[in-house]
Amino acid sequence: MNVGSVYSMLKRMENKTKLKITPHMLRRYFANMRKEAGWRLEMISQALGHKHLDTTVRYLNLIDDDLIEASNEFYERRSSIYRVQELL
């Protein structure tokens, strides 16, 4: 499918349903559904093609509790790699 076909299809849907849908809205929906399905932030970031996790964080509009949880998960998975216990 090319870009023009996607926009054309979404415009036809809008005319029928009176709901405006954009490719960007569908992309955000995809990302949020992956988050709710339990995907790790890194996996969502990779699926979206983001270079940096902070882009994905802003994209998902994560709230503070979600950020703390994601940070803790990242720390738990990576602490041995970075030898954090030796630094403490």
Rank of each mutant, 00 (worst) to 15 (best):
N2A: 12
Q46T: 06
Y75N: 04
A70Y: 02
P23D: 11
I44V: 12
L53Q: 06
R58C: 03
L19P: 10
E73M: 08
P23N: 06
V84K: 02
V84C: 01
I21C: 07
L41G: 11
L10A: 06
I21Q: 07
K11V: 01
R27S: 12
R40G: 08
R77W: 04
D66P: 05
L10D: 13
V6C: 13
R78V: 11
K20M: 08
S8F: 13
N72C: 08
K18Y: 09
Y59F: 10
L67G: 02
T56H: 05
K35V: 09
A70I: 03
Q46Y: 02
S8N: 14
S80Y: 00
S80T: 13
L10F: 08
L88S: 04
V84E: 00
H24V: 11
G38Y: 01
N15E: 15
K51R: 04
L60K: 03
V3S: 13
R58D: 11
Y29A: 09
R40P: 12
I68R: 03
S5K: 08
I21G: 08
G38V: 04
T56E: 04
K18P: 10
Q85D: 03
S80A: 10
D54K: 01
S45Q: 09
E69M: 06
I63Y: 00
R83L: 12
T55G: 10
A31M: 07
K16M: 15
M9P: 04
R77A: 14
I44D: 07
I63R: 06
Q85G: 00
L62V: 04
E14K: 13
R12D: 15
E76F: 01
R40H: 03
E36M: 05
E69Y: 02
I21A: 09
R40S: 14
N2F: 04
S5H: 07
N15V: 14
L19T: 11
K20N: 12
K18A: 15
M1P: 14
